[in-house]
Design a protein around this nucleic acid. Structure first.
Lengths: 394, 394
DNA sequence: TTGATTCTTTTCCGCCGTCAATGAAAGAAA
DNA sequence: TTTCTTTCATTGACGGCGGAAAAGAATCAA
C-alpha cells in the first residue's frame, strides 16, 4: 500500500494573504493594483502577500499583456496555478457515490461514480475509501499531491466538528465522518451539507463570485436552498437552514412527508411530479424522465403538473427573496432538465410574489451536471486548505 | 437660540476597544477576565482597552463584591456609566412622531409624542426638530450632552447614505433625511428602517444579546421582521429584507394591498383583523381595540379571527425559522395586546410547520410599549456613536 | 536621452495585541 | 503576625501586520 501522502500547509498566514489569494482565485488573473483595490489593501500589502504565494507556486505571473493602456509601466497579471494542488470531492447520495478529482481552481480532472453498496456507515466508508484511492492513483499521474478531501452529505452536518448529525436519506446519526475518512485516507477531510457545499462552489467559483448576499436553490429529488448572507454561508443556529422545500405553497395541496400539506417539495420535487403526472394522466409513469418525456410530447395533464411545479418554485424563491433580499438567486439541480417546461411559471410567480425591491433580485439558472455536487464537496476542501474564514467571505 | 452643542468622539479607536465596550454594554457588569474570555482577547488587551474608557468616564469600576469565590484576589467589575451620554431616538409613523431621550444604556429618560402635522417632508422635519429641541432642553437638566440622534422610518432606508429611499406610508422618495435633521439640530444623525432599529435594540440591549442568529417579528399595523445573521443585521442587497408580511399563508385568502392573496399581513395585521371581525360579526367594528374587546368578551366570530391570525403568524415564523435557522424569534409589536387570544395558535402552527431542528428555535414574546420604536432609533444612534461595525456584531 | 506616466517594490514606521513577568488583594496556614 | 497560595490586574518588551512615502522599473512619447 502506498505510503500515506503528507500534505503541506498553505503559506498564507496573515488574513490579508488569504484574502488576496481568494480574490485572485475567484476573479481570475488580476494585476497587483486590482487586487489592492478589490481587497481594500495597500499596494505594499499586496506585494508582501503575493511573494510567498508565488514562491510556493500557488500563484504565477501571467505574461498576458492584453489591451493595456499604452501609457506607463505595463501591469503584471497574476493568476492561480490550478495545477499546483489537487483535491477530491465526494458526494454520497441515497443510491450512489460520486467522486471527482479537481485542481485548485475547482476544475474537474476526473470523475467517478459507483452505486451505493448499502446505507450502513461501514460499507459506505469502504466504498468511499476505494473510490478515493482510485482517484489518488489518478492524481499520481499528474505528479501533484492531493491536499484534501471534501465530503458532502444531505442532512444536518456540523462542518466544524466533522460530524453528520442526522442524515435521513442514509439513516445516519452523530457519525464522526471526517475522522473516519481521515483514518482511511490520511488526508484532511472536510464534511459539509451538500447544498451548502454547492453554495460554496458558487460563491468561490461560480455565479456567486463577488456577491455578499445570494441564494442557491436546487430542484430535484428534493428542493433545497443554500444562503449566503454578509458574505458567509448560513448554517443556522441548529445546523439547518435553507429549508425552502418545506415552505408551504398551498395549504390544501398534496401531503408532504414532513406532515404538512402543499410544501414546495410536495409539489415540485421529482417524486411529487411523478405522482402528480400519474394522477393526471392515469399512465404508469415510473420516474422523472418518463414524466418529462410525456410533458415534452405535449400531454396537457403532464404539462399542467410542470406548470404548477414552476409556480411553486417561483413562489418559494420569492419567499426567500422577500426575507433575505439576496442580490441573485441561482436555480440549479437535476430538476432543471425540465426547465423549458416551467421557466415561465417560475419567473411569473416570482415577479408576482416578490415584494418591492426584492423583485430586483436576479434569477439565474445553471444546469447541474451529475458531478456538480461532488465538485461542491471539493470546493469545501479547497476552502479548508486555504484556511480562510470557515464558510469564507465572498 | 442655544449654541449648537459640540459632540465628542468616543475614545475607542481600536477594534478591540469597541468590542470590549459593547460587550460590557450588553452583558452588564463584568470583570476584566470575563471580558477577556467573552471577547476572545488577552487580559493585557482588556486592561489597555478599558483604561481610556474609564478615564473618559464611559466605564466605571463597580464596588459590587457579590458572591466571590473566597479565594484569591477579588475581581473588580466594570460597568457602563449610562449617565455619561444621552441620545435621542425618533420614530415617525403614519400619524405621529414619537421621541425618546435615552442614556448610553438605552434606558428611556423622557418620552414625548406629537401628532404628525402632515406627511410632506417639510412639516415633518419641522415637527421633528421641535421635538428634538424639547428633548435637548430636558437633556440640559441632566447636565449631560446629547451625542447623537437616531431616526426610524418604515420603508426602504439606506442607513449608510442617511437616505430614505422609499417610504410608502409617508410617501417619501430619496429624501436625505440624516443630512436634513443634522442641519436643524447640529448633531450626528443615524437614519434606519424602523424594524431594523428595533432589531438593533434587541441585539444590544434586549433578548438578542449574545446571539449571532435571531429574528424579531413585529405584529401590528403591519407584520415586519428584522433578521440578524452572523451577528449582523440583514439589510438585503436592495435595502429591503425581512418582508415576512408578504409570505403567502393561504393563496385563497383575503386580498393584500401588495396584490396577492393570503399574505400574512392580509390575515394577521390589525386592519385585516378589524375587517375580518366586521365580516364575521356584522358589527361596525372601527379599530383593533374594539375588535379585541369583542373577542375578549367571548364573541366566537371574533375569537375565530384571532385564532386564524395566530395560525398565520405561527406559519410565517416557521418559514423564517426554516430558511435561516435562528436561535430565537422575538415576537413583538402593538398586536401583542391580543397575545392571549392567539398565543396557542402561534405556537401550534409554528411547531407544525417548523422542519427538523428548526423547531428547536426559541419563541419569545416581548410586549412592545408605544415608545419602544423610538428606543430602537436611539439604539442605532448609540451604535453609530460607539462606532463599532455598522450593524455591529452581537 | 530625457520626460511623463503608471505599476511595483522597498524601507521605515506606527500600532495593536500577545507573552511573560511582576504587582496587588484577598484568605488560609503556620 | 508572617508567609503561602490563589486569583486578578498591570506593566513592559516583543513581534507581526499593514500603511505611507519614496525609490525603482517598465513602457511610450518627445
Amino acid at each position: 500500500m502506498r505510503s500515506t501522502p503528507r500534505t503541506e500547509a498553505f503559506p498564507a498566514h496573515t488574513p490579508a494573504a488569504a484574502q488576496i489569494f481568494t480574490t485572485v482565485l475567484s476573479h481570475g488573473p488580476l494585476t497587483r493594483s486590482d487586487m489592492a483595490a478589490r481587497a481594500g489593501l495597500s499596494a505594499a500589502a499586496v506585494t508582501k502577500a503575493v511573494r510567498p504565494l508565488i514562491e510556493a507556486g500557488y500563484l504565477v505571473e501571467e505574461a498576458g499583456d492584453e489591451a493595456r493602456p499604452a501609457l506607463g509601466r505595463p501591469a503584471n497579471s497574476v493568476r492561480v496555478d490550478g495545477g499546483r494542488a489537487l483535491f477530491i470531492g465526494v458526494k454520497v447520495t441515497g443510491d450512489e457515490i460520486i467522486a471527482v478529482l479537481t485542481d485548485l481552481c475547482c476544475r474537474i480532472r476526473v470523475a467517478r461514480h459507483v452505486p451505493l453498496p448499502a446505507r450502513e456507515p461501514q460499507p459506505v466508508l469502504t466504498a468511499v475509501a476505494d473510490l478515493v484511492h482510485e482517484l489518488l492513483a489518478e492524481a499520481d499521474g499528474f505528479g501533484v499531491q492531493v491536499q484534501g478531501i471534501g465530503v458532502a452529505v444531505s442532512g444536518d452536518v456540523d462542518r466544524a466538528a466533522g460530524e453528520v448529525r442526522l442524515s435521513p436519506f442514509l439513516e445516519w446519526r452523530d457519525l464522526p465522518l471526517a475522522e473516519l475518512v481521515e483514518m482511511t485516507t490520511g488526508l484532511p477531510v472536510t464534511v459539509d451539507n451538500d447544498v451548502r457545499a454547492l453554495t460554496v462552489a458558487e460563491q468561490w467559483f461560480g455565479a456567486g463570485v463577488g456577491l455578499s448576499d445570494f441564494a442557491v436553490v436546487t430542484v430535484g429529488a428534493g428542493i433545497g436552498c443554500g444562503l449566503v448572507v454578509h458574505g458567509k454561508v448560513v448554517s443556522g443556529a441548529h445546523g439547518v437552514a435553507g429549508e425552502i422545500g418545506h415552505v408551504v405553497i398551498d395549504p390544501t395541496g398534496p401531503l408532504c412527508h414532513c406532515g404538512n400539506r402543499g410544501c414546495a417539495e410536495a409539489i415540485a420535487a421529482d417524486p411529487a411530479i411523478v405522482a402528480a403526472v400519474r394522477d393526471a394522466t392515469g399512465l404508469p409513469v415510473a420516474d422523472a424522465a418518463q414524466a418529462l418525456e410525456l410533458a415534452r410530447r405535449g400531454d396537457p395533464g403532464a404539462r399542467e403538473v410542470y406548470a404548477r411545479a414552476g409556480d411553486a418554485i417561483g413562489r418559494a424563491i420569492a419567499t426567500v427573496a422577500n426575507l433575505m433580499g439576496p442580490e441573485r438567486v441561482i436555480i440549479s439541480g437535476e430538476g432543471l432538465a425540465a426547465y423549458d417546461l416551467f421557466a415561465e411559471q417560475i419567473r411569473d410567480a416570482f415577479a408576482a410574489s416578490a415584494f418591492g425591491t426584492a423583485a430586483r433580485c436576479d434569477l439565474l439558472t445553471r444546469p447541474l451536471l451529475f458531478d456538480e455536487w461532488a465538485r461542491g464537496a471539493a470546493a469545501t476542501a479547497i476552502q479548508s486548505f486555504i484556511g480562510g474564514p470557515p464558510h469564507g467571505t465572498g
